[in-house]
Design a protein around this nucleic acid. Structure first.
Lengths: 195, 195
DNA sequence: GTCTATAGGTTGATAGAC
DNA sequence: GTCTATCAACCTATAGAC
């Protein structure tokens, strides 16, 4: 297919999102200017506005895409028949999925406050849907009698916080492989919920 | 003691820190201007520079004070004789201490990236010292044979992440009292480390 | 699709009056 | 100890040329 000189819409769009994600995660949304993002991409600031109506929409797009991908990826994970296999699947999935997405995970926690009220509500609902996935597994485990926990909602929050925490210290090529980390965390979660 | 009219150094200093903490936590360090802080305190922007050499020093002061208070408060907690009572003391202390300090806890996580390299190193060292406190308890528990865990370092990171996560969802006057939350989390931690 | 130029406003920090 | 006034630099977003 012929392409006009200087026309790169299929490349520039994704590159803007990638550089914005990197810069927002490193310096914070408010600390990063549109000029900086443009410079990292290799265009002038004005060109960014062909791809996003404004700066906040760019952030929202990053967070929304991250949450959509998270929920879609989880929906495709095979989770066996019982609550226990489902719980193990969730624990391993959460670590495996989020570890290579440290920037987006960090943004989804830290930069929610820079969204408009309605955009915030969208992300918040998706986050809650994900938490409910785990809570449902825990309640099923209680009903099956294979789990013993004082409070499924708190257990869900505790487990997700614990698993997401891996992102803060894990370094590729460090002491432990991602596989080993998964197994160690699964061991702690399994015991914590009385399995 | 006589005091000149318009002289409020003993009041203005703390108020600047309080308002800065509140605004930084709500909107992010970079998103808050010195003028906004000054307006919240009820002075003009120029007056802030009597109390801090620059904006970053104000942030550093907040984080340093928070970490110093955390370590000092933990040093005074009675922790019984064995590793198990020490672990329970740590779990309850962490929740009890951090819950009324949500702003400072959030800042200490999120705004580290806005510190200079040397100021960052100071906070990082204090954070690591706190983590080591827990790790030491876990290793002692292993040695005593009262705990069974695959990796004390990972367990320490997992426990702290889990406990700090309480701050993200706990609301005063909600479904559960702080006391109940402490007990539920202690139950999960105790099981997770094989006690 | 990208550039240059620009409008209109805010920023951190300082100087000097009181 | 605080205020007012100010500087130079930077910001987001848009208009119009190519």
């Amino acid at each position: 297919m012929a392409r006009k000189t200087g026309s790169h819409s299929e490349i520039t769009g994704p590159r803007i999102r990638a550089e914005a994600s990197r810069l927002f995660a490193r310096h914070g949304f408010a600390a990063v200017s549109m000029r900086q993002i443009a410079a990292a991409v290799g265009v002038q600031a004005g060109a960014l506005y062909l791809y996003t109506p404004d700066k906040e929409a760019l952030l929202f797009d990053l967070l929304k895409t991250h949450m959509d991908e998270l929920l879609a990826a989880w929906a495709e994970v095979p989770r066996g028949t019982g609550a226990l296999t489902a719980l193990e699947a969730f624990v391993r999935f959460h670590i495996r999925h989020n570890l290579p997405r440290a920037e987006a995970v960090f943004l989804s926690y830290m930069e929610l406050r820079n969204l408009s009220e309605s955009n915030f509500a969208v992300i918040e609902a998706l986050r809650r849907a994900y938490e409910t996935e785990l809570e449902t597994i825990l309640r099923a485990g209680q009903a099956e009698g294979v789990l013993a926990l004082p409070d499924p909602k708190l257990a869900a929050m505790a487990i997700i916080a614990m698993l997401t925490g891996v992102n803060t210290w894990y370094r590729e090529g460090g002491r432990l492989s991602r596989e080993t980390v998964e197994t160690i965390y699964w061991d702690m979660v399994r015991k914590a919920v009385g399995a």
